[in-house]
Design a protein around this nucleic acid. Sequence first.
DNA 1: TATTGGCACTCTCGATAATAAAGTGCTAAA
DNA 2: TTTAGCACTTTATTATCGAGAGTGCCAATA
Lengths: 352, 352
Amino acid sequence: MISDYQLSERKRSLLNAIIKDYITHGEPLGSRTLCKRHDFKLSPATIRNEMAELEDAGLLVQPHTSAGRVPSDKGYRFFVDHLMESYIPTLEEKQFVRRLEQTSKAIDAVLFQAIRILSDATQAIAVAETPHIRANPVQTLNLMAVDEESMVLSLTYSGNIRRQSLIRLSQPIYSEILSLLTNYLNEQLHDNVSLDELFHRIVTCPLEREIQYYKSIILDMVSEIYAQTQREEKIYMSGTSHLLKEPEFHTTENAYPILQFLEQDQFVHQLFKRLNGTVQTQRSDVYCLIGYENYYQELKNCSFVATPYFIDTKAIGMIGILGPTRMDYPKVMGLLQTVANNLTQTLTRLFS
Amino acid sequence: MISDYQLSERKRSLLNAIIKDYITHGEPLGSRTLCKRHDFKLSPATIRNEMAELEDAGLLVQPHTSAGRVPSDKGYRFFVDHLMESYIPTLEEKQFVRRLEQTSKAIDAVLFQAIRILSDATQAIAVAETPHIRANPVQTLNLMAVDEESMVLSLTYSGNIRRQSLIRLSQPIYSEILSLLTNYLNEQLHDNVSLDELFHRIVTCPLEREIQYYKSIILDMVSEIYAQTQREEKIYMSGTSHLLKEPEFHTTENAYPILQFLEQDQFVHQLFKRLNGTVQTQRSDVYCLIGYENYYQELKNCSFVATPYFIDTKAIGMIGILGPTRMDYPKVMGLLQTVANNLTQTLTRLFS
DNA sequence: TATTGGCACTCTCGATAATAAAGTGCTAAA
DNA sequence: TTTAGCACTTTATTATCGAGAGTGCCAATA
């Protein structure tokens, strides 16, 4: 395990300096440059020796003999886990984040605003899942006719989260039937059943007598509700163009696969899913995948930092940032955390 | 005006060949290559002379002396207006487009699917506005309580387009008041008033006596409805990564400004707005902006092709394609037209 | 008169070579 | 243990050169 490394204080500060410098300048660091930029009381020669040892430890790599050193993925990991100090947002950035509170109500709009702010502030790509609400236990369910062909579905999820949605039906339905169905569906909702499970039951199990007659209506309704909730599970993304500004993606061959990857929502969903169970930064619930840890070949030169957002105390989705491996981790993680907290507050205020 | 040019039949077919070749190969065309690829009964020398004249006419340009020729924006314009034959979709592409009919109901989902299909089929960037519904005259308006804090707003627009939306209020409201408000608002809707105008009236004009008391509720409601309808006006986009595959955007400096431009919804909205009143292809309502016609510096190496989509006979939004100036116009315009027609059919079927 | 072949000229592109810059590793001295 | 010095390596940059593709013009041709 990486955290087992016992590095001397000098090596740590050296590594810290190298990574920070590399993050800002994007060029391999040589002993001389390093010596000029920082005031270690050491000569380049000593630094050279230390750097050679850091390379032996796998924390640095040389792009080629007689180039400077660059942090390896392992190096970044060490930095993230042991070296970096938490980031303090500037006043301007705080101001920036506060815009979130001024957004209007709908959950999508809030999310959208959040990733906009995040990508602007970090100059990287921000992505967010919309809340996966279907896996949540439903407490009560209510159907209400609007006119012959549409109705409102009100759901109260555990944690007192309430959502309504407007459902259009392909055939007319009368309010008596609607209340019958409401009762029936509510009966099915005893022990913490989620929408997913409820629908599964309805489709697979035989229905009770009195309901049997309306099966086609129920199925129609269910499939519409299902489609609608599924359609709601989207990926929002902002700031893809920022990637092209980074020197490592200046040639299109490097940038293209990443952008193409990101355009496919299902991959991004998977990316978020994969985070559960992976390494997590100790001080918070910010997940961080560095370079090759990313599993997807397309992202091998990227790091992905993500964190869940909540309504009340229930995690309902994730928000993250994708940038070059050489990203400013403290800043990105700090801002991500701040925005996610704000998001949680805003959503909790509005929807609990 | 460009269409005044009287080109000899030979010049026309030569220009046609040059543009088509350039579209597929992406490299300047020389007289010799041209002669080899096509069976004009002419020698390279003659072709050279003709090309020189086409250049004098401003239809071709030379990247530098002694390179081949490349179509100018004016050349593309002539091609689009006078030379190109309409594109016949392949069986596969027809199959492709048919997927649109299988999409589920919500208007956004249909739109989203449409641009997905379009960008896949054309290998370019597809963009669409969501319908701008607020400018449409409203015929009837209905409010209906769902619970204390939310209600359904049903609107019937001219052309019998009906839409419902769920509104959350920041304060409780009782159904008696709701029906009062419904009546009041409906009275305001006499002569073809759109939502925009209605809201403007409410905010600026003094309210009648009996209603006055509920002003804060009305304003609250109006602002929520307004926010909600405005929020609905989004830009959908698909296939941005396709741009990076084109040789002219292989170096990031060229691609970056375009992607950044596209990330700002307000610019894309403007882009669509600007189309009204500009040149239009005669054979259909496909608009086409070539190179510098695009007004925006960022898009000077791009062409933008767009067409409205309808519900019934009412244009409610636009859908378009952005690609390099060297795009395959017949194909792009043909597929755009086909998809837009399908979109119109699907939407009309669902929402009229 | 329109078309063609020939030819000198121009410009780009790719390869090669030379040079400068930056960095390393090693050794010996402090 | 640290440092200074030095030879060596590698990349990036620049210059040079020739090949290739294309042009324009002129004189010959049909």
